[in-house]
Simulated scan of single mutants.
Amino acid sequence: MERIAVYGAGTIGACQATLVIGNGLPCTVIGHSEEGLARCRAAVSQNWDDLIREGLASEKNKRAAMAALTITNDASLLTGSSFVFEAVSEDREQKCQVFRTIGRYAANNAIIASCTSSIDAEELAAMMKYPERLLIAHPFQPVHMLPLVEVVRHNKTSDETLQRTIALLKRLHRKVVLMNRSVPGFLVNRFAQALFREAIYLIEEGITTAADIDTAVKYAMGMRYSSIGLMEYFDAVGFDLEKRIAENVYPDLCDTKDIQSLVLQGLASRKTGQASGGGFYDWSGKDADDFRYRKQRPYFEGIREWCMPGE
């Protein structure tokens, strides 16, 4: 069995740890400040409270899971770890330092799975003394709830590293998509950016509103592609009809390569989204707990697959 650690005590690290201990496996989280460790422990505890509220876990499960969790600033506790999720910020210098620290303390055959969402796998591999033991395992937030992980290899990733990573992710009940090389945004963020660009364009042109775009996505696209895949749908419609639709739509799609004016205006006015209280929506009147719940709701059923501790 892999001995699992998470390097990074932020939101991704806390949720990754929740997933590991939620499947009955011990986990060590390495942070860098006492404040960060406290936030991490509180976040993991809140994740369990949400599961308990939904009837998906018990207080007994939570106690057993929290007992399997070590949160520390002492990197020497990586000693013996055979699989490390790297979940620090998207700072190349910091990641390079973290890779060196993991190499100093972790097991000789330890795999490093970077949770990066934007850095090329080849670039990360160049930071490694043993690049064959590195790949990207990019999760999605909330990490412990949303089952998909994008696994990205580079030209030196060994088959053993790939096989061990996929085996562990399946043990954690993750759905894996494999990419043989990096492209900016990997898969999901490429799709998301294409949608964001078109949506912002439609708002800027006065064609519709953010609320109506969200309604269209939630009650058509989101529902459709949650039961059948995007390319399954393309095949179901058929190449002939999709070709005719594309001929009508492609010429009118937004194809800007620049950041759009609505985003730049938001940055200038400091209305930058939920954290600032305003963005495309006025967040001052929104219920933060309700929003957190709605973000998790589609994934609650998958928790029933977990091998809960304390059973």
Score class of each variant (00 low, 15 high):
92 R>S: 00
237 V>M: 06
86 E>C: 07
76 S>E: 13
7 Y>I: 01
171 R>K: 14
55 G>V: 07
138 H>L: 03
115 C>K: 03
35 E>W: 12
168 L>P: 12
36 G>C: 07
191 F>P: 01
239 F>T: 11
167 A>M: 04
55 G>C: 09
245 I>D: 05
125 A>H: 06
204 E>G: 06
280 F>E: 01
23 N>L: 08
81 S>D: 01
267 L>F: 09
97 Q>C: 03
160 E>W: 15
93 E>S: 11
34 E>Y: 04
181 R>C: 10
298 P>L: 09
155 N>P: 12
310 G>Q: 08
23 N>S: 00
228 I>S: 02
73 N>V: 01
86 E>N: 11
88 V>G: 05
17 A>I: 11
307 C>K: 15
97 Q>T: 13
31 G>F: 07
247 E>W: 08
160 E>C: 00
66 M>H: 08
220 A>S: 15
23 N>R: 06
38 A>Q: 14
210 A>M: 08
205 E>K: 15
212 D>K: 09
80 G>C: 08
187 L>Q: 10
13 G>E: 09
77 L>Q: 15
272 T>W: 12
308 M>N: 04
95 K>R: 09
280 F>P: 00
146 L>C: 06
251 P>L: 07
71 I>F: 00
13 G>Q: 08
262 L>I: 15
74 D>K: 05
57 A>C: 00
257 K>G: 08
104 R>M: 01
183 V>N: 03
123 E>S: 14
256 T>K: 03
142 P>G: 05
57 A>M: 04
86 E>G: 09
167 A>D: 08
251 P>V: 11
156 K>S: 13
250 Y>P: 02
118 S>K: 04
158 S>M: 05
48 W>S: 03
109 N>V: 01
242 E>L: 11
255 D>W: 04
309 P>K: 06
124 L>V: 14
8 G>H: 10
50 D>Q: 14
138 H>E: 08
65 A>N: 12
148 L>K: 09
59 E>T: 15
15 C>M: 10
72 T>Y: 03
180 N>Q: 14
7 Y>V: 06
216 A>Q: 07
72 T>Q: 04
208 T>W: 12
133 R>C: 01
270 R>N: 13
260 Q>F: 01
68 A>V: 03
272 T>V: 15
213 I>D: 10
138 H>K: 03
23 N>G: 00
275 A>P: 00
102 I>P: 04
18 T>W: 07
170 K>A: 07
71 I>Y: 01
279 G>S: 02
121 A>F: 07
149 V>K: 04
293 Y>E: 13
166 I>K: 11
208 T>S: 10
87 A>Y: 13
293 Y>C: 07
52 I>D: 03
216 A>G: 09
72 T>P: 05
100 R>T: 09
266 G>K: 09
206 G>S: 01
168 L>H: 05
65 A>M: 10
278 G>F: 15
80 G>F: 13
35 E>L: 10
9 A>P: 04
308 M>P: 00
144 H>K: 04
302 G>H: 14
77 L>G: 00
249 V>R: 03
50 D>T: 13
129 K>H: 12
110 A>K: 05
100 R>Y: 06
138 H>M: 02
42 A>N: 12
311 E>G: 14
266 G>E: 10
149 V>D: 06
196 F>E: 02
4 I>N: 00
253 L>Y: 06
79 T>R: 12
172 L>Y: 11
215 T>R: 13
229 G>E: 09
107 A>K: 08
